[in-house]
Amino acid sequence: MSLADFHFDWSLLGPPLLAGLLVVSTHVLLGRKVLERGIIFIDLTIAQVAALGVIIAGAAGLAPDEGGDWRSQVAAGIAALLAAALLTWTERHFRKLQEALIGSLYVLSACVAILVLTGNPHGAEHMQELLAGQILWTNMAQLWPVALLYAVVLAVWFLWAQSRPAAFYFLFAAVVTASVQLVGVYLVFATLILPALATHGLSNRKGLAVGYAVGGGGYALGLWLSVPFDFPAGPFIVVTLASLVLLTATVRRFLR
C-alpha cells in the first residue's frame, strides 16, 4: 500500500461525503434532544420501522425489493409517521414506560422484518443493506430531495417546533425516513447518539459546534480510509465516529 492509495477521490467519495454531511446537519441537533429527553432508542426504533416499511412494500410488490426510489421513500415515510403518532400517544399516556415501549417497538419491527423476508432468496442481503447502508453508491440525484427536506425540517424546528414537544416525533420521523435510505440504520443511530455523547454537558452553541465537527470528521475520515483498507464504508464510519468521541472525551477531560 502506497501514499497514492490514500488519495481522496472526489468523483467517488464526493457524493457520499455530501450525503454524510447532510445527515450530520440534522442528526447532531436532534441527537442532543434525544439524549436530553432520555429516549435513547427512539432513533434506532424509528429507523427500523422505516426500514420495515420498505421491506413490506417490496414484499407486497409496491416498491422495488432493493429500495431507493420514491415508492420506497413513501413506504418508509408512512411507516415512520405511524410510529411517530404511536409514540406521541404513548408518551402522553404512559410517560414512565416510554423508553421500554420504544425498545419493544424496535424489537417487534425487527422481528416482523425478518419474518417478512423469510421467503425472499435475497432477504439477508436486503436486510444487510438496510442496516449497514450503501453510502458509497450515493449519487447527487438522491441528495437534492433530501437537502430540501432537511432544510424544511431545520426551519420548522428553529422557528416553531422547539417549544412543542409533540412535534418532535413527527420531524424526527421525516428526517429518519430519508436518512435510512441514504446511509442505513446503523449510521442513523451512530450519527444521532455518538456526537451527542461527545458533547454531553456543553452549552447548546458549543455542543452543536463540537458535535458537527465530530460528525463531519467521522464521515470524512471514515470514507477516506475505508477505500485503501477495503472496509465496508458504513460500519467503518461508525467505528471512526466512536473513535472521535473517545478522543473528544479525552481532550475535554484533559482541559478541565
Rank of each mutant, 00 (worst) to 15 (best):
L3V: 11
D5T: 08
F8P: 05
D9H: 05
W10Y: 03
W10A: 07
S11Y: 08
L13R: 00
G20I: 00
L21C: 11
V24G: 08
S25D: 11
T26S: 14
T26E: 09
T26C: 13
V28Q: 00
L29P: 04
L30E: 09
L30G: 06
E36H: 14
G38I: 04
I42F: 14
I46K: 10
A47G: 01
Q48A: 15
Q48L: 09
Q48D: 04
G53H: 02
G53L: 07
V54Q: 10
V54R: 03
I56Q: 10
A57C: 07
A57Q: 02
G58P: 02
A59D: 10
L62E: 11
A63R: 00
D65L: 15
G68I: 05
G68F: 01
G68Y: 02
R71L: 11
S72A: 15
Q73N: 12
A75P: 05
A75V: 09
I78D: 10
I78Y: 07
A80F: 03
A85V: 12
A85H: 01
L86I: 14
L87S: 10
H93D: 08
H93W: 12
F94S: 14
R95A: 15
K96N: 14
G103H: 10
L105N: 07
V107R: 08
V107I: 15
L108A: 15
S109D: 08
V112P: 00
A113G: 09
A113K: 01
I114D: 01
I114N: 01
L117K: 06
L117H: 07
L117V: 08
G119N: 10
P121C: 09
A124P: 07
E125N: 13
M127W: 14
E129V: 08
E129W: 13
L130M: 13
A132Y: 12
G133I: 08
L136C: 06
L136T: 09
T138L: 01
V146T: 11
L148R: 12
L149Q: 09
Y150S: 03
V153W: 03
L154C: 10
A155P: 00
F158E: 13
L159G: 13
Q162Y: 08
Q162V: 13
R164M: 08
P165F: 07
A167Q: 12
Y169A: 06
F170W: 14
V176S: 01
T177F: 05
A178I: 01
Q181W: 05
G184N: 00
Y186N: 13
L187V: 00
A190M: 08
I193Q: 03
P195I: 05
A196D: 08
L197Y: 12
S203Q: 13
N204V: 15
R205K: 12
K206V: 14
G207V: 06
L208H: 13
A209H: 11
G211F: 06
A213P: 14
G215H: 02
A220H: 07
L223A: 04
L225A: 02
S226Q: 01
F231Y: 12
F231E: 03
P232I: 00
A233I: 02
A233C: 04
P235F: 04
P235V: 01
V238H: 03
L244A: 03
L244C: 04
L246A: 12
T248R: 02
A249V: 14
T250M: 14
V251W: 15
R252F: 00
F254T: 13
F254K: 14
F254C: 13
